[in-house]
């Protein structure tokens, strides 16, 4: 069975600003891979390449066996790559329900919207109470939940989760990771970009350690501890 996502010698950046230098990475179906590293090493760029937001300047991106190097962002989404971007990841000017509708309608068609919505609210009742509220007025944690629920209803092949814990209180981070665990149980592969290493290590099978735009180390999560420690300059535990 081929990998859901494969990056082959990917270089990428923003104009003259280079962020990735020859990254190789693959995610097998159902697998959870964590990408860790200190800030500014290209983690977010890696996430954006994985979901088609940033086109690599060289190298190949393969989704489910098909070459997606020059594909458009929406084609990635249709091929089953979902992306929960760093920071705000919902449409602030749309209501909760509209946010959900937008992705559900594409996946299930007009007739499936109602059922999809019900499913989503069942999964996370707090959202049901706020269905007519603008997503921008939700708290940071609720916004992440909304993004996740959207993904769950989607049932994508791969979820790229970029710094989901960013700016959230530790308790909320726990909840978000619990949610990620549920996403994983549905068979969706995960590419988790994380700064807070401990959560990522617990959740994922494999760890990729990025340093200044290249892969410094990759291997099973169980062996990651000391590498992470030397890289980040802080003890993992």
């Amino acid at each position: 069975m081929s990998a859901v996502l494969e990056l082959d010698d990917v270089h990428a950046g923003y104009g003259p600003f280079r962020a990735l230098f020859g990254v190789n990475l693959s995610v097998a179906p159902g697998e959870a891979v964590a990408v860790v590293g200190s800030n500014g090493v290209g983690k977010t760029t890696l996430a954006r390449v994985a979901s088609g937001l940033v086109r690599p300047t060289s190298g190949r991106v393969v989704v489910d066996g098909n070459d997606f190097t020059r594909a458009r962002t929406f084609q990635f989404a249709r091929a089953g790559v979902a992306h929960a971007p760093e920071g705000r990841s919902t449409f602030a000017s749309l209501t909760v329900e509209e946010n959900l509708e937008l992705s559900i309608r594409r996946v299930r068609g007009n007739s499936g919207v109602r059922a999809g919505l019900d499913e989503a609210y069942e999964m996370f009742p707090a959202l049901a109470e706020r269905r007519q509220q603008l997503a921008g007025t939700l708290s940071g944690g609720q916004q992440r939940m909304l993004a996740m629920v959207r993904v769950l209803v989607d049932a994508p092949k791969l979820l790229v989760a970029d710094e989901l814990s960013l700016g959230l209180a530790p308790l909320i981070v726990e909840q978000v990771y619990e949610m990620l665990g549920r996403v994983r149980e549905t068979g969706t592969a995960l590419l988790v970009i994380e700064q807070h290493v401990s959560h990522a290590l617990k959740l994922c099978d494999r760890v990729v350690l990025l340093d200044r735009g290249s892969v410094a180390w990759a291997g099973p999560a169980s062996e990651a501890g000391e590498h992470v420690q030397s890289q980040l300059g802080v003890p993992a535990h």
Partner: peptide, 15 residues
């Protein structure tokens, strides 16, 4: 409305 707010995020929704 979605595109108005963010074309990129709309594309992430497969549109």
């Amino acid at each position: 409305k979605a595109v108005v707010e963010s074309p990129r995020m709309t594309e992430l929704n497969g549109i």
